[in-house]
Write a protein that binds this DNA or RNA. Structure first.
Lengths: 323, 323
DNA sequence: CTACTAGATGTGAACGTTACCATGCGCGGC
DNA sequence: GCCGCGCATGGTAACGTTCACATCTAGTAG
């Protein structure tokens, strides 16, 4: 910076002002500095900047240890939105345990991040006083029913209601549920929404089967599906795919003998056989809204963002019930 | 740090030594400092450290703008391996253009990363003199046939050869190829390996169809597949899935009328209908090896890592040719 | 013409750490 | 008994920015 200042014939402070878009600068001076920067290939040292400002312009992200498409694309969209907001992202993943979560938080805080974005994690960060305990704003994404100060989620209940309404309209009454792992908030929300909806009439008789989000666990669930069910609501697309595979192995046709619905709308789900009826979740919007919320908090705001609406996509894996 | 030193009754320099595991320290002193750190909840400021050492212990990653499972899990494994090596990762994604690539490089370099990991990108970073132009080591992952100084890749040719050997053994002679976009190195490598293998006898008559990695483009390709082909080799699993969907719409049975092979082994591919024969690529190993190479370069080594071997997984989407 | 004001720029200190050199102390060899 | 060596520790400077304040210039009102 000193060299740039010398070349432009100004002080280092003026260079700093150019870099930070200070208003009171003569255009000629600014241009002279800009030229010098260009000629010298100068790049400002952000470590030094962070040292004196106490801000790193970085959002720390904690993702799940697994590679599911939903959380992964949410992380991805956080990164894009952060970039647009002039911030960068530092990412680490945490296994689903309080311990590893604490390690991840320590790691990021040690790196001096300005805020924390926690994606699809079981454990909640900053239990008691949210922001204040850690000194930085924390936003939870895809956090299900976790009670947190600041959360961005998709309206799961609405999504589940659309699924079940759809199945009802097709005449299905015996609908079995394959849930995600109960340790996940999102899995719990989907399951309880299912129970609330279906519970009033035919419920109870068909117990929910707990999977772990993977297609393999969906296959396993498919082997256990009650033969008297006419429809299955899976908590995500991958399990639905595995389930259909198992049903096929058992000689049960989809949607002929049984209708199947997923949740998430993975890119492949359009092309599975049969194409999967599912609920599209706008993960990209989740990331965007979360970054907006973070930026607002950093500026002192205290309001919370709203739920994001999902969308039902009816394809060929559901059909009217057979009499 | 000053407070910690005061509490432990030593100088700040000794605290620094404890933090950096300096050998010449009396155990008693070390413990006293450690206790003080614990009691005060002290955490060292990495910005200040980076300022004076000129090292950030951070690897910058440039990923693709799209959300494909291969690159994404590679990025993920880089992150894990980096963490094990005591480094963190800063991630940004770049659209497939020279321009955006330069922006990404600038962004990361401005952040002071110690090395660059470029995953599945068309454009090459540091064209001419590799490391020296940028001042940091650069490793390219999944870079296909790009001529770069330091690259970690899976042995594509071996994978393709296994696929085609398998199809040959089943009696297939008319094998059509659905490639990835020719702008991707990996797509080009797979295609030319296919051409080299098949070219010698029946080739030419069945032109390769170019997709863009997505299941949608695979569907489109499926509509165009030559009816005289008995097998299709797709450059990734997603396109294979879309292709099978299209064949099904056309009334062509898989594997009865036509065998289909994918590439990548996505987690769902086991459970598609029919389960997909594919080539498993160990993306996790790619990330791990890349980090090892980076650490070695940072320590002054100059050797290059080897190719990683893929594995053929035969499932139900391939069957002997029908006479 | 003077005095004041606002805009443009310069000066010195500070952020929290590590590098480098200096210092004090105990120990073994002559 | 003295010298020198190595270990443990302390002191000072430096890294490259931004902040707070000081200074200078030009324009404007009285």
């Amino acid at each position: 910076m000193h060299d740039v200042a010398a070349r432009a014939g100004v002080s280092h402070q003026t260079v700093s002002r150019v870099l930070n878009n200070h208003p009171s600068l003569r255009p000629a001076t600014r241009q002279r500095v800009l030229d010098a920067i260009e000629e010298l290939g100068y790049r400002r040292n952000l470590a030094a900047r962070a040292l004196v400002t106490g801000r790193t312009q970085t959002i720390g992200m904690i993702g799940p240890a697994t590679a599911e498409i939903g959380p992964l694309s949410t992380l991805h969209s956080i990164e894009l939105a952060a970039r647009d907001a002039g911030m960068s992202t530092l990412m680490t993943s945490a296994a689903p345990s309080r311990e590893d979560m604490d390690r991840a938080v320590d790691f990021l805080l040690g790196r001096g991040v300005d805020a924390l974005a926690v994606v699809a994690q079981e454990a909640v960060v900053g239990e008691e006083s949210a922001d204040h305990a850690l000194g930085v704003p924390v936003v939870h994404l895809l956090a299900g029913d976790r009670e947190v100060d600041l959360a961005v989620s998709i309206d799961q209940e609405h999504g589940v209601r659309m699924v079940l309404d759809h199945l009802r309209e097709l005449g299905h009454a015996r609908i079995q549920h394959v849930s995600g792992p109960m340790t996940y908030g999102e899995a719990r929300v989907r399951k309880s929404a299912y129970e609330a909806f279906v519970g009033s009439d035919v419920a109870g008789e068909l117990p929910a089967i707990e999977g772990d989000w993977t297609a393999d666990s969906g296959y396993q669930a498919g082997l256990e599906i009650d033969a008297s069910a006419t429809a299955v609501f899976c908590a995500n697309d991958q399990m639905a795919l595995g389930l259909i595979h198992a049903l096929s192995d058992r000689g049960i046709a989809v949607p002929g003998d049984m209708s199947v619905v997923g949740f998430d709308d993975n890119p492949e789900s359009r092309h599975s056989l049969p194409p999967l009826t599912t609920v599209r979740q706008d993960f990209e919007a989740v990331g965007r809204v979360a970054v907006e919320a973070i930026v607002a908090r950093l500026d002192g705001a205290t309001d919370s963002p709203e739920l994001i609406d999902p969308e039902l996509l009816v394809r060929s894996s559901t059909a009217p019930v057979r009499n």
